[in-house]
Design a protein around this nucleic acid. Sequence first.
RNA 1: CGGGCUGUGGCGCAGCUUGGUUAGCGCGCUUGACUGGGGGUCAAGAGGUCGGGAGUUCAAAUCUCCCCAGCCCGACCA
Length: 471
Amino acid sequence: MAKAPVLTPQAEDFPRWYQDVLNKAELADNGPVRGTMVIRPYGYGLWERMQAEMDLRIKACGAENAYFPLFIPESYLTREAEHVEGFSPELAVVTHGGGKELEEPIVVRPTSETVIGEFMGKWVQSYRDLPLLLNSWNNVVRWELRPRIFLRTTEFLWQEGHTAHATREDAAAYASRILHEAYADFMTNVLAIPLYLGIKPSYDRFAGAINTLACEAMMRDGKALQMGTSHELGQNFARAFDIQYLDDQGQQQLCWTTSWGSSTRMVGGLIMCHGDDRGLRVPPRLAHIQSVVLCIRDEEGAGEAAARINEELVAAGVRSRLDAQVATPFGRRSTDWELKGVPVRLEVGPRDVAEGQAVLVRRDTGEKQPVPLTDVVATVQRVLAELQDSLLAEATAMRDERTADATSIDEVLEAAATGFARVPWSVVAGEDAAAELGTKAVTVRCIQRADGTVPADEGEDDLYAICGRSY
RNA sequence: CGGGCUGUGGCGCAGCUUGGUUAGCGCGCUUGACUGGGGGUCAAGAGGUCGGGAGUUCAAAUCUCCCCAGCCCGACCA
């Protein structure tokens, strides 16, 4: 019985391969409107876990969840000049409501700085109200020219955080705290995706920001994906929305605000970073199904043994599921679970029951090992922990191997053809250099210090730019 | 908006260059039997305005013209 090749994640086929994983692993379909997306239950399970883990970290940073409207008066957007300019080409605008043309068009939020700014202005009166730390899980619409499922959909699901602070230093520290303690921690330790952290070049900031911090990850084809951003908005939005406070000297002061976001794009990043030619590989800490107990045939006590093993795993806190669909051939079921990336599979058949064991299969390596029935729970827990670490180690090794040091624009272009280039910032600073890199679709992904930490601004000495092609 | 490409059963494709009986293949689907430790096997079936329109011809999936839709690359971007 020959095994058919399932997927081939080679560079030139990468978009196709990505789409195949999405389809075959039952993650998402394209929506009815171009650029929209339907997330299937399995894909949503992954997203829910991402949301839960991210939400924990955001709350640990002190922010609280709130809810704001989908509709924004067009006039709000126009209050911050750079913000409108940046977003107006991609707005969806509602011109009619209740069967009548509206006096003022309403935009569907592309992001919520403006509405939230409006309410922060009402809520903040005194220095005692600061910092005001808000987060919102919602969906936003940006009419992008080239949508791509999970990575850049017209409508997308994300969290956006918005905070107001008394001083520039507080705001900057908080934007950085979110980048490190929420985003980088989650992406590195849960998604097992290693990151380059840094600031964006000034010409590539969020519309209306005075500084943009970013997490950049490398996908298996060597291209970059921006996994999350955190912005210092200075006093731009505070001025536009009158977010002021009375300080302890009785003086009116303008607040300093931040905003930060991460989206369902992370699901795309997960696929493109950890996927292999058998489908998705989900890191155990993320997986909503960490192990599946696959009953091969319901004979000679195998069905009962499989159910019992599953119960033991669940009781021990493992997110485990029983697959007793014995009417479906074994090969089909094992392949399906592999496509979906379930980290550990336990095969239980009559032969195993006779020998008092189960066969444990690791998704990352495909390695199979017999495990005594008495030892299943402990072994699964150990393997899950190992697998989490080895996915991160593998992704980190790939990224490092494909990140080359460069000293000139030519060297950057050469390195970026297959991965990233790390080059002194002075070599690629400025828009002229950016234009030259752009001829080969290469961009500065982020700017960091020599030791990889995040600089305060691009004027510091001894900075390096991470350059690459991106999604 | 530029540059390329593709439209053929539910899905993926071949056939088109060089027009020729009844348009094929894989997957999926239906029924039955056998199976079952890696997308099983065998048998029997269902399923098609060949994107649309016009033209050339004895004859068009195939050639010509027009239209429509979608995809990819670039510009925009979480």
